[in-house]
Amino acid sequence: MHKRLQKNDVLFLSATALLLAAVLAAMLLFRGKSGKQVVITVDREVFGTYPLSQDNVVRIDTGTSVNELTIENGTAKMTEADCPDKLCMHQKAISRERETIVCLPNKIVVTVTGGGDSSLDAIVN
């Protein structure tokens, strides 16, 4: 390790950077439209579907844990969680199709969908 950055490293790092730039660009290009509703799943089962157009506070009581999802001005945000890390509460509010909030310890996934049943099936699979 005499030279800090050899030719191979430069090649490897540039290739990685290009690849990641392409991934990011693809993500921005295919960013979803404004969604119509959120689907909440708990441990692989659909818990409920709620429209984004209607302000609402959803209590997600899974039996062993309680989370609270607040729908306001067309966006959804996790506002309460009884898990230890509260990572889901720090995630930003979601409103576009496919945007997702996850609470890993309580196995809760909140995803924005467009509204049709077909897209719902594709996302919940």
Partner: peptide
Amino acid sequence: VGNTAVLYYCPVLLV
């Protein structure tokens, strides 16, 4: 979680 919706985070996490 048993749900591929989590993969939504993938691009940002890779970068």
